[in-house]
Amino acid sequence: MNLRISDVMTQDSVNLESESFKDKDELFRHLASLLYKSGKIQSQEIFVESLYEREELGSTYMGNFIALPHGKSMTVNNPGIAFCRCMEGFAYESQGEVGQVKLIFVLAIPKETDPNDYLKVLSMLAKLLMHDEFINELYSSLSYEDVIRAVKTYESIVD
């Protein structure tokens, strides 16, 4: 399986106009609702539980106003990525680290997915987020089409 971010991020799972969140739980529930609406998951509650299970293993706060929470669960129908941009950052706590976040990508991975494939997608996303130009495009995007164009452009650069 050779998943590309641009293959699994749908218009239904991108929110560019989010208000700030009061906490991580509110964020997780919002992102789970986007994945549910896009048909990627069967249960918002079970997926949120998988996000918290993953949080127990290590921080998903990446610094630079970015968080990459992810969950692997039986409730995931198909791999998916939800993206949320908050113009006002909020305090994101993960494994004792606290930082302001504005850009959040959440990965929904089916339980049976090979761990290497899962890590490849996560690694690709992390590589994209190392490019300041990519991050700037995410901040300036006006639509899903802008976001997906930026993802495809930088996927081809780091691939």
Rank of each mutant, 00 (worst) to 15 (best):
V48I: 13
S143P: 10
L27G: 01
R54A: 01
I41N: 07
K111E: 10
Q100N: 12
Y52M: 03
M74W: 01
R54L: 01
D159F: 08
H131G: 00
S38W: 02
S140I: 13
E49K: 09
L16G: 06
I157E: 02
A82E: 07
E55D: 07
E93Y: 02
A108N: 12
L119D: 07
I157W: 00
S59N: 06
M130I: 01
L125E: 03
G39R: 12
L51N: 03
L68F: 10
V147T: 10
T113W: 04
I135D: 04
D114T: 09
K72C: 03
L128K: 04
M130F: 07
Q44E: 15
G80Y: 04
N77G: 01
K111Q: 14
H131A: 03
I46D: 13
A32E: 08
I135L: 10
S33C: 08
Q95A: 11
E53H: 12
R4T: 13
D25H: 04
Y154L: 05
F105P: 10
S18N: 08
E19M: 03
E93D: 08
M9A: 06
G89H: 04
S20I: 00
L35W: 06
V8A: 02
L68V: 11
L3Q: 05
Q44K: 15
G96E: 08
P69K: 08
L125D: 01
P79L: 07
V121D: 00
N78F: 09
L103D: 13
L138E: 14
I109N: 05
Q44H: 12
N2L: 14
V147K: 05
S156K: 15
Y118A: 07
L138F: 10
N77P: 03
M62I: 08
G71Y: 05
T113G: 09
P110Y: 14
V151R: 01
L3E: 03
G58V: 09
S50H: 02
S20Y: 02
I5M: 15
D12Q: 15
G89A: 11
Q42N: 13
S20Q: 11
F47D: 02
P69N: 11
M62S: 02
S59I: 02
Y139Q: 12
A126I: 06
